Deep mutational scan, measured.
Amino acid sequence: TEYKLVVVGAGGVGKSALTIQLIQNHFVDEYDPTIEDSYRKQVVIDGETCLLDILDTAGQEEYSAMRDQYMRTGEGFLCVFAINNTKSFEDIHQYREQIKRVKDSDDVPMVLVGNKCDLAARTVESRQAQDLARSYGIPYIETSAKTRQGVEDAFYTLVREIRQH
């Protein structure tokens, strides 16, 4: 089974770092803004072998026109913010609204991801993020692309959301 996953969120929150940590098991430290990259990885989730087709997208506003296209083809979405960047957390709402509009559905598989949880300088409390996820009816997972904490959990949870859909 193949799953088309799309990673969305503001610029600099760590979308590529999360994806590369999942696929290649290493942490990319330097920031190089993405336009669009796709990665494929075969994994076993709950005993089922599946192929993850992951689209890593641009957070930069100037590429926002490309969003409709990949939102149409994606089956599930990782909505990523950084726990030390309140603005990126506030941006999640717009991504969710755009996904709902493009998919013409209120019920699209999504996982809210709070990345950079290895950093002490948190400005978005776990509780705020949990409340937001609960209001959307989606899971919330904290990750660190640096330490790998929660990385597999985030992507695998999204696959489970798609399966249950």
Rank of each mutant, 00 (worst) to 15 (best):
E30S: 07
Q42A: 02
A120I: 13
I20Y: 03
S88C: 10
L5Y: 00
I138T: 04
D106W: 03
A129V: 09
T57M: 14
Q42K: 04
T49P: 02
G114T: 09
I92Q: 01
R148D: 08
D37Q: 01
A17C: 04
C79S: 01
E30I: 10
D29G: 09
Y70H: 04
E152A: 14
P33I: 05
I35Y: 14
Y63Q: 15
I162G: 09
E90C: 09
S38I: 02
D68E: 07
L55C: 02
V151L: 15
A65Q: 02
G76H: 08
F155S: 09
L51Q: 09
G150D: 12
I23F: 14
M66T: 13
L119A: 14
D106I: 03
C79Q: 05
T57R: 09
C117F: 08
Q130D: 09
R163T: 12
T147S: 12
Q42E: 00
K4I: 01
G114N: 06
G47C: 02
K4W: 00
Q128K: 08
G137E: 13
Y63G: 15
I162D: 10
S135Y: 09
T57G: 08
L51I: 00
D107C: 13
E61D: 07
G9F: 01
I20F: 00
K100L: 04
M71R: 14
M110P: 02
K146P: 15
F155W: 10
E30V: 03
V43H: 13
N84I: 12
Q130G: 06
Y156I: 13
E36F: 04
E142M: 13
D46A: 08
T34R: 00
H93C: 12
A129F: 14
R40L: 00
M110K: 00
T143S: 11
Y136Q: 11
T123M: 08
E48Q: 07
I138G: 09
Q42F: 05
A145G: 15
V28S: 06
D131V: 09
V102K: 01
E97R: 03
E125F: 11
L119N: 15
Q130T: 12
L5P: 01
E2Q: 05
Y156T: 14
Q42R: 03
A154I: 15
R122D: 14
T147A: 10
K4P: 04
T143D: 12
Q94W: 14
G47K: 06
L132V: 08
C50G: 01
I99N: 10
S135A: 13
R72Q: 06
L112F: 12
R122N: 12
E36R: 01
E125K: 11
T57K: 07
V80F: 13
F81G: 05
I45V: 07
Q24Y: 08
L55E: 15
